[in-house]
Computed example of a mutant assay.
Amino acid sequence: MAKMETKIGRRFEGKVAIVTASTQGIGFSIAERLGLEGASVVISSRKKKNVDEAVEKLKSKEIEALGVVCHVSNAQQRKDLIQKTVEKYGKLDVLVSNAAVNPSVDPILQTQESILDKLWEINVKATILLLQEAAPHLQKGSSIVLISSIAGFQPQPAMAMYGVTKTALFGLTKALAAEMSPDTRVNCVAPGFVPTHFAEFITKDEAVRKEAEGKTLLNRLGTTEDMAAATAFLASDDASYITGETIVVAGGIPSRL
């Protein structure tokens, strides 16, 4: 990380950013990157212990950080996340929606209705409901980034319904970009294979890892910092003429023409 810090700018000086599901993995790296670039960052996840530990890590790097417990499918906790942010910082400039679940490896036609509901609720609906809460506080020139997945372009058998919910985020990005223009930009990042706790199935088996690396053109898996860099770009004024777009950050894995 130290090497990266010497290269990054301060594009978020004076900005306030919320990142959901941000106490570990891709979400934490995004929060850290925005914070290193000067943002006041609000991190959240379901467990208070994880939130507190992540805030301490950020503060140890001299990042201004607030932690709020938020399970994105809980209406009151979504409200609290936005309210506590505005109470402390007075506004909101960036919102990164990163929360997702993949509770099943069943084929779609064998997936229980309760699991379908959970996938839809966390991976798609919660983003919409959170933005309904956040919208009144977004500043002119604000930016939303949704975190989707390469699986949204080609849903894989073991995570097919998860992939379909990620496909929905591409459409949601387009629809929200139109609805929230011209004051708020809405874009999307589609990560490829990134070894995180969420994607343990890739890393715990050497053969699966090698196969995943082989699908990329760069012969390596992505890092959480790779995803953070792309997200920070889209959220920043460097991307001020980009809205309604999805950037694939997957080392060249086939996605679309």
Results as ranks from 00 to 15, higher is better:
D106V: 05
F193R: 13
G171R: 13
P254K: 06
A229Y: 08
V124P: 00
Q156T: 00
K125A: 14
S73M: 14
Q83G: 10
I144P: 09
V105A: 15
V105E: 14
G171V: 12
G38Q: 05
K59D: 04
I63M: 02
E179I: 12
Q156I: 08
L221W: 07
I63K: 14
K3C: 15
S104Y: 00
N219P: 07
K59C: 09
K140W: 06
E213K: 00
I144E: 07
R78Y: 13
A54S: 04
A230C: 03
T20D: 05
V145Y: 04
D80L: 07
R46H: 14
S22T: 12
K174I: 14
D52M: 02
F12R: 15
L169K: 07
G244Q: 06
A177I: 14
N123K: 02
D52W: 03
E13H: 03
D93C: 14
K140Q: 13
V16M: 04
K204T: 11
F198I: 09
L109Y: 06
G171E: 09
V19G: 04
R185Y: 01
P136Q: 15
S104T: 04
E113V: 05
A175Q: 11
A207T: 10
T85V: 07
V42S: 10
K210N: 10
M180V: 05
L109V: 13
T223P: 00
V249S: 03
R209C: 04
T216F: 08
G252I: 00
F153P: 05
I242M: 06
R11E: 15
I147Q: 03
L36Q: 14
T127G: 15
A250I: 01
T224C: 02
G67L: 11
A199S: 11
K59G: 08
G163V: 00
M4K: 15
T111Q: 15
S44C: 11
G14H: 02
V55K: 11
E32I: 10
N187W: 02
A235T: 07
A207F: 11
V16F: 09
E133G: 08
A175S: 12
H197A: 13
T246K: 11
E245P: 10
R33T: 06
E133N: 09
G192D: 12
D237P: 09
K84W: 04
E179G: 00
V145M: 06
A158N: 15
D52N: 01
Q156S: 14
K49E: 15
A99I: 14
G214I: 00
A99E: 04
R185K: 02
G35A: 00
Q110Y: 14
T223Y: 03
T243Q: 02
Q132C: 11
F201E: 05
D106G: 06
W120L: 04
L116H: 11
L146F: 07
M1A: 15
T203Y: 05
G9L: 13
V248G: 15
G171L: 11
